[in-house]
Structures are given as C-alpha cells and as structure tokens.
C-alpha cells in the first residue's frame, strides 16, 4: 500500500511533509540556535539576524522554542493516535468475532465514551492523576478511540459476513487465516485513513490542551503553546502566530492529504490501479481463449 500511495503526487507530497515534520521532531531540539528557556531583556523583538522569528514577551528566542517544542508536539500527537488505535481497533474487530456478549459490552462502553464531554473529562482525569503530558495523551487517546472502534468494526462486519469468507470457512479456514488473508486487506485501508485523519486531530488536541494549560506545562515550549502566547500580543507582533500556526496547519493538511491518498489507492480505484499494473506486467498479453475481454 505504501508503494501505491507514493505513486500519487498527493501521496508523495503528504509523505514528504510528514517526513520533514518527523525529522524536525527528531533533530529540532538539537538545531535550536539558543536556549529556548533563557529569558532576556529584549522582549517582543522584531525578527532580526539574531532572532530570526523575533522574541516573545519574556525575551525568549521564538525559533529556538519552536524547534525545541516540535518533539513534544509531534510525539504527543502520535501518542494520542497510537493509544486510540490500540484501544479502538482491537475491540472493534473482536466485537464481530467474539460473540454477542462481548459485542454488547464493547458497544455500550463505546457509547459511554462518546457521550463524555471531552474537555471536562480531560480536566477531571488530569486533576485525579496529576497534570502531565502522558496523562493528557492517554485521556485523549481513549476518548478518540471510538472512531477507530467504529471504523474497524464496520469494515470487519462487511468482510466477516461476505460470501468469500464463507467460501474460505467451507474450505477449512481458521479465524486467523481469514483475518490474515481476507480481513486485513479490507480493514487496514479505512484504519489507515482514520489514522491519518486522527494524526491531524491529535495535533490540534495537543495544541488545544497546551492552550488550556493541560498536559505540557510552561515554560516547556510546544507549537500550540507558542500559538496561544503569541495571540496575547497580536497588536504588537501580528506576525508571531504565523510560524507555529503554519507548522500545525502543514502537518494537519499533510495528514489529511495522506488519508485521501490512502483512500484513493484502496477500494475500487485502488483495485483498478493494481489490476492495470498486473496486466501491464504480463509478458505476453492476449485475449482469453474462451470469452475474451469481458
């Protein structure tokens, strides 16, 4: 599927941007030209050779804070998505396979999770378990997991009741065989799309939580935190929100672009693409002896 995604221009752009963001998360803190926490008297300075993106209200170098905060922002977002993926997908698939009792119980739990008001729940849990990035991300991941549950359950339901799965069962296929050979290829694309979309959502959530003071604590920088701080000084530094906002928007946009590319290479369109290639790669193409091309 990765190869098929990369055949699309939108897929290549999305993967390129996300790789750049990943690289930024990896080496960003090392590239920071100055100490991101060091305050100076040069507050709210304009962009200059010394401070490429200016300084904030406490005189801290904005570029350094942006680079240093990229790791927490990206890792936090990934944490949300991975937790949601694990908590949502596994019960989503099992709810179809494990019978009525598990199905009923899992559906009621998911209904409850959907009904919980997100911010109120996040505040309550962080108040209970302490305010930290891990607590905040776990809460967010669990609350986002119903999306993965529903996507994986819907895809599994469609496949599990299909005639080709019954054909495999009649031939003696086990649940594992069916999952590996028939289920996985159908369930993976919608999950990948949900993953890419949630990555974008996760970014916004991490930023929103930082904005509210939940999760990452000041003075540790994050993209969302920088955006929130800069909005307080919009009249003096109207350019300040542009850099953190651009990074967040670019990552969310690339995630959605990747989701669209995954959707485009799977399903009917994806099968057509694969079939065209299969036939193109045939060494001696000729018409069928019996029926020709349908």
């Amino acid at each position: 599927m990765v190869r098929r995604v990369l055949t699309l221009p939108s897929g290549r752009v999305a993967v390129g941007v996300l790789l750049a963001v990943g690289l930024l998360a990896l080496v960003g803190p090392l590239l920071a030209p100055q100490d991101p926490l060091a305050t100076t008297t040069d507050a709210l300075a304009r962009p200059s050779v010394q401070h490429w993106l200016g300084t904030d209200s406490l005189g801290r170098d904005v570029l350094s804070r942006l680079l240093d905060g990229s790791r927490v922002s990206v890792v936090g977002s990934l944490e949300v998505v991975v937790i949601a993926l694990v908590v949502g997908v596994v019960p989503g698939i099992l709810s179809v396979q494990l019978g009525r009792v598990f199905e009923w119980a899992s559906l009621r739990i998911v209904d409850t999770l959907i009904a919980l008001p997100f911010l109120l729940f996040a505040v309550a849990v962080t108040a209970l378990l302490g305010n930290g990035i891990t607590q905040a991300m776990v809460v967010t991941g669990v609350l986002v997991s119903p999306l993965f549950f529903r996507v994986s359950r819907a895809a599994t339901l469609a496949v599990a009741r299909s005639a080709y799965v019954e054909a495999a069962v009649i031939s003696g296929a086990s649940v594992t065989w069916v999952a590996r050979r028939h289920l996985w290829s159908k369930v993976l694309p919608p999950i990948a799309v949900a993953f890419a979309q949630t990555l974008g959502v996760g970014f916004v959530i991490v930023s929103s939580l930082t904005f509210l003071g939940i999760g990452v604590q000041p003075p540790a920088p994050t993209w969302g935190g920088l955006l929130a701080t800069s909005l307080g000084f919009l009249d003096q530094q109207p350019w300040a929100p542009i850099a953190p906002a651009a990074l967040i928007v670019a990552t969310v946009w690339a995630s959605n672009l990747l989701a669209d590319a995954i959707r485009d290479v799977t399903g009917e369109a994806g099968r057509d693409l694969l079939d065209r290639r299969t036939r193109r790669s045939a060494t001696a193409p000729s018409l069928s002896r019996t029926g020709g091309t349908p």
């Binding site: 005639a163 080709y164 054909a167 031939s171 003696g172």
Partner: peptide, 22 residues
C-alpha cells in the same frame, strides 16, 4: 473435515464469492 474438501459449494453470486482483492 472441511480441509479434506469432501463437500464443496458454489455460491449463487460468483462475484461476491470471490475476494475482490485476491
């Protein structure tokens, strides 16, 4: 018993009985 393949079945709708991805 099923793996022995003693009894086999041909479905009513051939399109639905073949995995579209295989």
């Amino acid at each position: 018993l099923r793996r022995r393949g003693v009894v086999q079945y041909v479905f009513q709708d051939p399109l639905k009985s073949l995995d579209p991805d295989l």
